[in-house]
Computed example of a mutant assay.
Amino acid sequence: MAKFEELKNDGVFPVGEKNDAYAQYFIGQSYLQGLVSPEDNIDFGIGNVTFEPGCRNDWHIHHDGFQILLVTGGEGWYQEWGKSAQLLKKGDVVVIKEGVKHWHGATADSWFSHVAITKGTSEWLEKVTDAEYAKLG
């Protein structure tokens, strides 16, 4: 179980500020630290996303691209629609292909951090309900 101080003080990348710009697509508090700037002139985003315990994003799909998650700390969940959730730990890598409905977030008792490399646009869908989340253990 990772604590906030571990990720803040010993994390690979800064935790960043509260993720207010995307708060409507999350249950719980997340933090976002961009790792590239618009001046870098690349057509994908790279950001460090940190989730408080129990925080998760909504079901979503990436169009015209992909997403890669590089887990840098704590413990979290990744789930594709119609499949069982996968427990994620530091060092895990998840490749999410275009059009795959999924969500990701922290376990109930651990902070969680990953670098998200995202190309294309995101279509935000329904919330991961408390009942669905509670089944993950």
Rank of each mutant, 00 (worst) to 15 (best):
E126W: 09
H114L: 00
H62Q: 09
E75F: 04
D130R: 09
I117R: 12
K127I: 07
S37G: 09
L70R: 12
Y25P: 04
A108I: 07
K89M: 06
Y22P: 03
G34P: 13
Y133I: 07
T118D: 00
L7P: 00
F51C: 02
G99W: 11
I117F: 08
Y25H: 09
G65C: 02
V100H: 10
H114M: 03
T50Y: 06
E52I: 02
V94K: 14
Y22G: 00
S30F: 06
G28N: 10
L69M: 10
N57Y: 00
H63N: 14
F26A: 01
V71C: 00
E39V: 14
V100K: 08
A2S: 14
Q67N: 09
A106M: 03
T50R: 05
N48D: 03
D10A: 10
G99Q: 03
D109M: 01
E6C: 06
W103F: 15
T129Y: 02
Q86K: 15
F26V: 03
G47Y: 11
I117L: 15
D92Q: 04
W124Q: 01
H104I: 04
G73A: 08
S37I: 07
L7Y: 13
H60I: 00
G137L: 11
K3D: 13
K3M: 07
L32V: 13
G45I: 01
D43P: 06
L125W: 01
M1R: 09
K101M: 13
V49E: 03
G76S: 15
Q67M: 10
I61P: 00
G99S: 11
F66W: 08
T72K: 02
Y78W: 09
N48I: 00
L70F: 11
N57E: 00
V115K: 03
L125Q: 07
L125C: 10
P53W: 10
D130Y: 05
N48G: 05
Q79F: 10
E17Q: 13
Y22K: 06
D109F: 03
A131I: 08
T129R: 03
W77A: 10
E6Y: 00
E123A: 15
K119H: 11
S110Q: 03
V94W: 02
I68Y: 01
L7T: 10
V128W: 12
G137S: 14
V128P: 03
V36F: 12
K3F: 14
G45M: 08
V94D: 00
Y78M: 14
Y22Q: 08
K3N: 15
E126K: 12
L125K: 12
N19T: 07
G16Y: 00
V36S: 07
L7N: 05
V15I: 11
K8Y: 15
Y78S: 09
T129A: 06
G47E: 05
Y22N: 12
A116H: 04
V100W: 03
K8W: 11
G91W: 05
A134D: 13
M1A: 12
G99P: 00
T107H: 04
F26D: 03
A85D: 11
D40P: 04
G91N: 05
K127P: 05
